[in-house]
Design a protein around this nucleic acid. Structure first.
Length: 568
RNA sequence: GCGCCCGUAGCUCAGGGGAUAGAGCAAGGGACUUCUAAUCCCUGUGUCGCAGGUUCGAUUCCUGCCGGGCGCACCA
């Protein structure tokens, strides 16, 4: 299959489709020849067998056809194989195995085409047009601007950011968004807390608010603002002072959160302010619209949203009896706003304490006239930090660390992101701090990065020895024939499809599994196969293979937001 | 009580309607005159929580139960 690989499409999908087409054609031919009855046309799926002894690809169609054909599956499989068209990807061997599987063993030419494709595409290898430019928004972290980010925020940031990266690589128009809760109750309490600390600093006797924010960072904020314009503030009446301090505090916290997330490799397209929505009257508008559509009623002096008619398990208050909006109202406004900005799929990453929130949010989306299925929610489960084999007590008073910043200081961005991306988001995670800090073989991050560094070292050595890198379009790749080389090529070929599948399943953690598998295959190759010092033809082919591995490792690490060091 | 997540090897977890269920760590034994030993190779372990159901086939899908975690505000 010379130059038949399309760039915008996952290579392994093209192979799979080719095989499926040919099996379907074989079924038709067999029926026409009277070998099969074919009362109804079966769905042909081409799968990758778990055992590699079972071929590169396999299909179980014959198994499902036994009943309608009134014949043994193996016999049916034989008929299919007999009529299989010869065109398309080269097949070196076909076997009928087990209860009636058809196993395909492919000739290696297609893998050589893959290597050439990797060389041609470079950092773009892995990207496809699968998503066809569909607009997707992922909202994640969205922590309150009243305190530092915690470790679950760090987990959500890793998951959300990589999800956006793989969606973008899959051809979606994907956007990151952070919703700033810079309005409402908690901001007011925050302002009061800063204000209390400020007055403490100048020696006034103050009762710290009972529901205030006790953290040391609040004192730091007070110190900072005191230096800057303490005199002016202390001259104001209390209400005005609290308002200004709330504003100041929020601005500072958001600034810190932005900086920390940037250090973590996360750059949002949009930081969306709740206050801006409130200021433009979006909250009132939501209540009006819902009222206009008859989705509300009044009870006990409050305005309720009849969310139960959209599947929620109880109705929700929109306007409290004291006239304030509940947090739900601006959230509804925000979600409607997302759709109005043209997002076709909206993905929210929420903490485990917010899962009860999903139904009412979806109800609100539907009540707004949008498709509730277009709202997806990923629950990012809790994180337990493990040190010395036991959970770190998350106790603010005991001063055991809980913040994202402290985590980054301790283990670094690469380890933190990798560890958070090793598990699926919806399962609880034990984060082993000791393991994350180990600069050695037990640490999976270093294992993957080391593979990359090793390759760079080979390429540098080649240059030093004056071994020219071959022209990938011309080089003969047929010498690549050991099991290690073939497995490595197959893994390289799988990248684009892995990315698509991870994106579709919204499961970025699959990429860390892939990265580790690829590194393992490379390390095995490295042990078994010498690149430099082999015969020139073999060296040339292996240089290409090794360089393709480097490209793929780098591309995967880039998707994970982890550095790819050239030396370690 | 209701809802969500989880239950797979000693530990932490992947996987997933198919043919012998995997990885890492931990334990033991090997492999560096060579391109980085932060590596590789070999060795053992499973009632896939339990019970039903659907299916030619279930660890995977469905239901129930048991166990663990987390939610169930006119807080956000």
């Amino acid at each position: 299959m010379k130059e038949r690989l399309e760039r915008g499409k996952a290579v392994t999908r093209q192979i799979r489709e080719d095989l499926r087409r040919r099996v379907e054609e074989a079924l038709r031919c067999a029926a026409a020849a009277g070998d099969l009855k074919l009362p109804l046309f079966p769905t042909v799926t081409i799968e990758v067998p778990r055992e590699k002894d079972h071929g590169d690809y396999a299909t179980a169609v014959a198994l499902g056809m036994a009943r309608t054909e009134k014949r043994a599956p193996r016999e049916i499989a034989e008929k299919i194989v007999r009529h299989l068209p010869k065109d398309g990807v080269g097949i070196s061997r076909i076997e009928i195995a087990g209860p009636g599987f058809i196993n395909f063993f492919l000739a290696h030419d297609w893998l050589h085409d893959v290597l050439r494709l990797v060389q041609a595409m470079g950092s773009a290898y892995g990207q496809t047009e699968h998503g066809a430019g569909k607009k997707v928004q992922v909202e994640f972290v969205s922590a309150n601007p009243t305190g530092p980010l915690n470790v679950v925020n760090a987990r959500a940031a890793a998951v959300g950011d990589t999800l956006v990266r793989i969606l973008a690589a899959s051809g979606y128009d994907a956007h990151r968004e952070f919703y700033i809760n810079d309005a409402g109750n908690q901001v007011a309490r925050f302002g009061l807390s800063v204000e209390a600390r400020l007055r403490e600093l100048v020696g006034q006797k103050v009762q710290f608010p009972a529901d205030g924010y006790p953290g040391e960072y609040v004192r730091d904020l007070a110190r900072k603002v005191l230096e800057r314009d303490g005199e002016v503030l202390l001259g104001l009446n209390q209400e005005e002072r609290v308002r200004r301090l709330a504003e100041f505090g929020v601005r500072e916290m958001v600034k810190d959160q932005k900086a920390l997330l940037a250090r973590y490799g996360v750059e949002y397209e949009v930081w969306f302010s709740e206050k801006s929505l409130r200021d433009e009257g979006a909250a009132e508008k939501v209540v009006e619209v819902l009222q206009g559509r008859g989705y509300t009623y009044e009870k006990d002096g409050a305005v309720w949203f009849k969310s139960t008619i959209f599947g929620d398990d109880k109705d929700r208050v929109l306007v409290k009896s004291n006239g304030e909006f509940t947090y739900l109202v601006p959230d509804i406004a925000y979600h409607w706003n997302k759709y109005d900005r043209g997002f076709e799929t909206v993905i929210d990453l929420l903490g485990p304490d917010h899962h009860g929130y999903i139904d009412r949010l979806r109800a609100a989306v539907e009540a707004g006239g949008y498709d509730p299925r277009s709202l997806e929610v990923i629950i990012v489960q809790m994180v337990r930090l493990i040190r010395g084999g036991r959970p770190v007590r998350i106790s603010k008073r005991a001063g055991e660390f809980v913040t994202m910043e402290e985590l980054l200081d301790e283990v670094g961005k690469d380890a933190a992101r990798f560890f958070f991306l090793m598990r699926s988001a919806d399962s609880h995670l034990d984060f082993d701090l000791d393991l994350a800090r180990v600069q050695g073989n037990e640490n999976p991050v270093y294992y993957v990065q080391y593979a990359h560094a090793r390759i760079c070292s080979i390429l540098q050595e080649a240059e030093k020895r004056g071994v020219a890198f071959p022209d990938p379009a011309e080089v003969d790749l047929t010498p690549l024939a050991t099991p290690e080389e073939v497995e490595l090529m197959k893994k390289i070929a799988a990248l684009p499809e892995e990315i698509i599948e991870a994106a579709e399943a919204r499961e970025p953690h699959r990429l860390t599994v892939y990265a580790r598998d690829l590194a393992t295959l490379f390390h095995s190759f490295y042990t078994e196969c010498r690149v430099l010092g082999a015969e020139p033809g073999l060296t040339a082919a292996r240089l290409v293979l090794v360089d393709c591995t480097r490209i793929v490792l780098r591309n995967v690490l880039e998707l994970l937001g982890i550095s790819a060091p050239e030396r370690m």
